[in-house]
Design a protein around this nucleic acid. Structure first.
Lengths: 177, 177
DNA sequence: ATAGATTTTGGACAATCGTCAAGATATTAT
DNA sequence: ATAATATCTTGACGATTGTCCAAAATCTAT
């Protein structure tokens, strides 16, 4: 996954993966039937690490301010420290537009991420005695779109990318939940 | 571009592009310095075709209903008829997360698309004597996210993908503009 | 300790990749 | 028509790809 996150799907070969691991290239075919199988396993592995990222903040927060602060902080931290791994997610999601074998796993992760965003927004709303005013799908689309854009700007060296994302989220979240 | 749209960046070789064209593989290096250069030119070429898609509808519409109807229709048509070309866009945008050479062009197209969405929403708002209530960036993130999701579902064979997108947009646009 | 199962190695394979260059062909200018 | 330029073809190259396999190494159970 580190190699994939560094090079991207298109430029990653099994030999490169093996070389940056503690194994040789031959052993990969002992555990994975082929390249697609290996990538699929990576996608599945990614999911588990990702979809509970904000859960602790969500359940611990006792006020809208506290939740907002924790969410913004975690969001910033993610872009700052895990940009490479997240660009891999967007890469693989795009690959699923072409490679049928990836679609089910990608769709499942997408759903899990949508649920995660929904949990945050629902909690934020309920802490104000309200309910979210947009659908799950729209909410996810919005935050995913903002995150993706921030990621691209950040990786391009734009120092204001994270600050702008924070500002945007701080303005938007109270209007939708 | 047709070959790229069919196979995706990762699986497309110069020889494959040549084979599906009227030329041989050698001639590509007469016009393009290397593979990255060729893809960059494709990205730039894509832009011109894309960013004025809704302009006629936007300027012709005389009421919110008319604009909504035209926008929904064009949106559906795009997903239905040009899904393959649009998955190429998402593919190349993801590639720009890894390949620095793509970033400037991708960022420029992204900006143009944002402007395009903004023009639609602004017009929709002004036809109701209003102004959009969210930022350009948020608006684009929202619609781009919804479109991307719809595209994935549509390509996976989900017959309800387009209808769901229409429904979502019909509900959202009046609340943001 | 020994036999059997499991895991790992490293090389071989055919196929494909991007790139290049020499020469053939077509176009244009005089 | 002829020369000069532009365009295209073809074959070659070294490198890399995914896959496979026989043999070596390691582990496990008795």
């Amino acid at each position: 996954m580190e190699t994939l996150a560094e090079l991207g799907y298109a430029r990653t070969s099994l030999r490169e993966i093996a070389q940056k691991s503690e194994f040789t290239h031959g052993v990969l075919h002992y555990y994975f039937s082929d390249k697609v199988d290996l990538i699929c396993c990576c996608v599945r592995h990614y999911k588990a690490k990702c979809v509970t990222r904000y859960d602790q903040i969500t359940s611990a927060a006792q006020s809208r301010d506290e939740l907002m602060k924790g969410f913004l902080e975690k969001l910033s931290e993610t872009v700052r420290d895990e940009a490479r791994m997240h660009r891999l997610w967007y890469d693989l999601r795009s690959q699923s537009l072409f490679e049928e074998a990836f679609r089910d796993d990608v769709a499942e992760i997408d759903k899990s991420l949508e649920d995660m965003v929904w949990r945050v927004a629902s909690r934020f709303a309920s802490l104000g005695g309200r309910q979210p005013v947009v659908s799950r799908g729209a909410l996810y689309a919005l935050f995913d779109g903002l995150f993706q854009r921030c990621l691209l700007r950040h990786l391009s060296g734009d120092r204001k990318a994270i600050a702008d994302l924070r500002e945007e989220v701080e303005r938007l979240l109270p209007t939708v939940a």
